[in-house]
C-alpha cells in the first residue's frame, strides 16, 4: 500500500475518532437499533432469522448513508478538499483510500450491531449465515457509499439525493442478500463480495472523472 493511501486512511480515521459526537451517535444508533431488534425477535413467535435479516439490512443501509457523509463530501464541506486536490495525488488513489476507510467504519459499526442483536435475541438458528451475509453486503454498501459521497459534492440537494442514490444502487445487492437467506443459495455471499469489488473497480475508474 502506497504512503499516500496510508496517510489518507490514517488521517481520516484519526479525524473520525476525534470527532466523538458524530462517531458516538453512529455507535449509539448501532447498539440501540440492534438491541431493540434482538429484543423484539426474542418475544415474537415468527421466524427470527427472517426478521433479523430484514432489520439488520435496514440498519446497515442507515450506516452506509452515515459513512457516506464522512467521505469526500465531508472534505468538501470543511473546505479541505482543495488541499487534497491541489496535492500530487491522483483521484483513484483518493477514492481507494476513502473506500478503505468506509469499509473499516461500516464493518466495525455493523459488527457492533451484530453483537448487540445476538446479545438480546438469544440463540438463533442460522445466525452464522446472517453474519456472513451482512458482512459481505457491507463491502458492496461501502463501495456504493464512497462513490455516492464523491458524486454528491456536485449536488445541491445532497441531503435528499445522497440517501436516495445509496438506496437505489444497493437494491440489487439487497435482493441477492435476501435470496441467500430465504432460498439458501450458497454462492450469494461470494457473489455479493465479488459484485462489491466489481462496483469498486467501476467506481474507482469513474472517480477519475468525478473527482477531477
Amino acid at each position: 500500500m502506497s504512503l499516500k493511501v496510508r496517510r489518507i486512511i490514517w488521517k481520516d480515521l484519526l479525524v473520525e475518532v476525534r470527532n466523538l459526537p458524530e462517531l458516538g451517535s453512529a455507535v449509539v444508533f448501532s447498539v440501540a437499533s440492534s438491541s431493540l431488534l434482538g429484543f423484539s425477535v426474542s418475544r415474537l413467535s415468527v421466524d427470527p432469522l427472517l426478521i433479523l435479516t430484514v432489520g439488520l439490512i435496514m440498519v446497515e443501509l442507515f450506516l452506509a448513508v452515515f459513512t457516506s457523509l464522512m467521505g469526500v463530501v465531508k472534505e468538501e464541506e470543511t473546505g479541505t478538499l482543495d488541499g487534497l486536490r491541489s496535492s500530487p495525488v491522483d483521484p483513484s488513489t483518493v477514492f481507494l483510500a476513502k473506500l478503505a476507510v468506509n469499509i473499516i467504519l461500516l464493518e466495525t459499526l455493523t459488527s457492533i450491531s451484530l453483537v448487540a442483536t445476538l446479545l438480546f435475541s438469544g440463540t438463533v438458528e442460522g445466525y452464522h449465515k446472517l453474519v456472513l451475509m451482512i458482512l459481505s453486503l457491507g463491502i458492496y454498501l461501502a463501495a456504493i457509499s464512497s462513490f455516492s459521497s464523491a458524486l454528491s459534492i456536485y449536488l445541491q440537494a445532497r441531503g435528499v439525493l445522497l440517501p436516495t442514490m445509496i438506496l437505489v444502487l444497493s437494491l440489487p445487492a439487497i435482493q441477492e442478500a435476501l435470496a441467500f437467506m430465504l432460498r439458501e443459495e450458497p454462492l450469494s455471499p461470494l457473489l455479493l463480495s465479488l459484485s462489491g469489488l466489481a462496483f469498486t473497480g467501476i467506481a474507482s475508474w469513474l472517480s477519475v472523472y468525478v473527482l477531477d
Partner: peptide, 8 residues
C-alpha cells in the same frame, strides 16, 4: 481559507 483539519 486554510484547508486544515481542525481536530488534528
Amino acid at each position: 481559507s486554510p484547508p486544515l483539519y481542525l481536530d488534528l
